[in-house]
Amino acid sequence: MKRIFIILWLSGCTIAIFAQHIGIKGKIVDSNRQALEGATVAVYRQDSVLVNGTISDAEGVFELKNLPAGNYRITVSYVGYASENIRIPDTAKNLDLGAISLTSDTELKEVTVTANSVIQKKDHLLIIPDRQQIKHAYTGYDLLYNLMI
């Protein structure tokens, strides 16, 4: 009799432990309902401590499993789009947020890429002067002086 009671008690504890975890899933799309691949989904507690996070797949779908029960704030972000914040109450179990639409924040029109002008090779340095340094040098010695070599 004692053994049966212990088995029933342990199975009840196991069910209670599994009931305290929640799952959240959804799909991230733009204003044209196109899926956004690689969007960041971050789960924060109410005190702004990061709990978990993931990114969306090629279809814009994300899924978070085994989160401890509690109040959460989900932040969905993607480059060039305004972030979306969603509050999750502690009463949620397995929550499907459906399609989360992000609105375009800014358009990226021009990107400037700058690189290091000093490249270290195995046995020497390759130094590439920029246009300003060349413009202000009258001779090769002036260029070397401007490069501080």
Rank of each mutant, 00 (worst) to 15 (best):
L95G: 06
K25Q: 13
Q120S: 03
S11P: 02
E107H: 10
I127V: 13
Q132C: 00
Q132K: 07
P89I: 05
Q133C: 02
A82D: 14
N116T: 06
T139I: 02
A115F: 07
H136S: 11
D142I: 00
S104K: 13
D123I: 00
I6T: 09
Y44N: 14
F62P: 08
V118L: 06
R131T: 08
D142V: 00
F62M: 08
N94E: 13
L97P: 01
D30N: 15
V61C: 10
N94A: 03
Y141M: 04
L102C: 01
R3W: 05
T75C: 06
R3Y: 01
L8R: 12
D130N: 14
F18V: 08
E37I: 03
K122C: 00
L147Q: 10
F62T: 09
E110I: 07
E59N: 15
V76K: 09
H124T: 03
V76T: 12
D57I: 01
F18R: 10
G12I: 05
L144I: 04
I55E: 15
R3H: 05
L50S: 08
C13W: 07
I22S: 11
S117Y: 04
K109Q: 05
A115W: 00
E84L: 12
T91P: 07
R33P: 00
G70Q: 12
K122P: 00
H124W: 05
L126K: 06
I88D: 13
A69S: 14
I6W: 04
G98I: 05
T112C: 00
T106G: 00
A137R: 11
I28A: 09
I17H: 09
A39H: 10
L10A: 09
V41R: 11
L67S: 09
R45G: 13
G53W: 11
V111W: 02
K2N: 08
N52S: 14
L126R: 02
T91W: 12
V118R: 07
T91H: 07
E107L: 09
V118S: 01
A99K: 15
A39T: 10
D96M: 08
W9L: 11
L144N: 08
L147M: 15
K93G: 08
D30H: 03
D30Q: 04
E59V: 04
A82C: 02
